[in-house]
Design a protein around this nucleic acid. Structure first.
Lengths: 207, 207
DNA sequence: TATTGCTGACTGACGAGTTAGTCAATGGAT
DNA sequence: ATCCATTGACTAACTCGTCAGTCAGCAATA
């Protein structure tokens, strides 16, 4: 079902197509081992075409990172819309986190690229940090503080460091990145265990 | 203070020296971008020398991974030596985990290499999984199960998935890999928060 | 016909792997 | 103790393939 596109339409689509293809190649091979020609081949065009839209391989890489890390603005809004007691809101927030981080292949692979290439492209780290990490941590912190204020959560070391609350989502993401399909994990059970731990801890409750 | 080494001594040291240098280069640049000549230059020798000891760059890389992931056999023993109530033993186990994972630069960077190059060198993953991950998770699982049996820990989703108990150590490791020195974190407070969360959870205790 | 998105053949640089040759340590002979 | 033939760790300059980036020309569109 190939639709015939006008030249203008084709040209307008090219950058997106190229960035999508580049993302796949960079994820698969890493920056250094990726060949611009292979990126082009994914679209059935040649290297020259890619260089009409991006001046260098480096520029292509940075644009690629920007392209996939773009659609994160809605997260903040979803967080503010959560309802119910703080423990429920925290549960929903964590589920949302799993969905956006461990569940979304693009975000996951973006993390891989940050780890693999971040030292040579520091700006991709800083950008992601400001646009994604800080707001997420702030949201968790705000939620936990509110829970403490309402008396639903107890004051303590854990309440002041939001990182430890979301760690398992990072953990599952890393696990999936390392063991793609080889050591699958029961994700639903993992997430339930995480939420259970965060709310109840391990110590037996006094009855 | 350069000590004069006999030829035999020099030759015996070479492989170690090369692997140490190679590790630094691979960590810094990644597999593809690392030049064998730069590895050699770290020792003040030339490329040819490296090829006397390792047949290809690939073989050098795999040997390098093997070289740094070697000293892990003692962890199991340290775990079995822990004493006291289960909550104390768990705390000590976590501290040990932080020491070996987040605290040790080599282990940390090994994780980075696994993430960055693992898809192209599957065997380095499998090896590490069997030699390090499985024993560690088994140890945590055994400890938690014992705590449940003794009544100190409560039965629940968290108790059956040891991963969620150690997640924050992974999280801190990743954080340090991504933000080397740029966004430092109060590690002692982080670890305390982790232990607090694991033991007590967030929910306020009934008084 | 004029325009332009694209091609594909080209270049220059770079890096893995090779190998003929070097020279200093070694150890046996004197 | 001194000499010298032999060894072998190492070098330096090479080949060969690869790949980023270029650009004159082509062919389809408007």
């Amino acid at each position: 079902m190939e639709k015939k596109l006008s030249r203008a339409e084709q040209k307008a689509r090219r950058p997106h197509e190229i960035l999508d293809a580049a993302f796949e190649e960079f994820v698969e091979k890493g920056y250094a081992a990726t060949r611009v020609e292979d990126v082009a081949a994914r679209l059935g065009v040649t290297k020259g075409t890619v260089y009409l839209y991006f001046p260098t391989k480096e520029a292509l890489f940075e644009a690629t990172i920007g392209h996939v890390s773009a659609p994160f603005e809605d997260v903040r809004a979803s967080i503010d819309a959560l309802l119910g007691p703080d423990s429920d809101r925290l549960r929903q927030l964590l589920l949302l986190g799993y969905d956006k981080l461990a569940g979304d292949r693009k975000t996951r692979e973006l993390l891989r690229l940050q780890l693999a290439e971040g030292s040579r492209f520091p700006n991709i780290i800083d950008r992601h940090y400001g646009e994604f990490i800080v707001p997420l941590l702030d949201a968790v912190r705000a939620l936990v503080e509110q829970g403490v204020a309402s008396g639903e959560f107890h004051q303590g070391a854990a309440a002041s460091i939001p990182e430890v609350v979301i760690s398992s989502a990072i953990h599952l993401t890393i696990w999936k990145l390392i063991f793609a399909d080889r050591n699958p994990i029961d994700e639903a059970a993992f997430i339930e265990a995480h939420i259970d731990l965060v709310l109840n801890g391990l110590l037996a409750r006094p009855r």
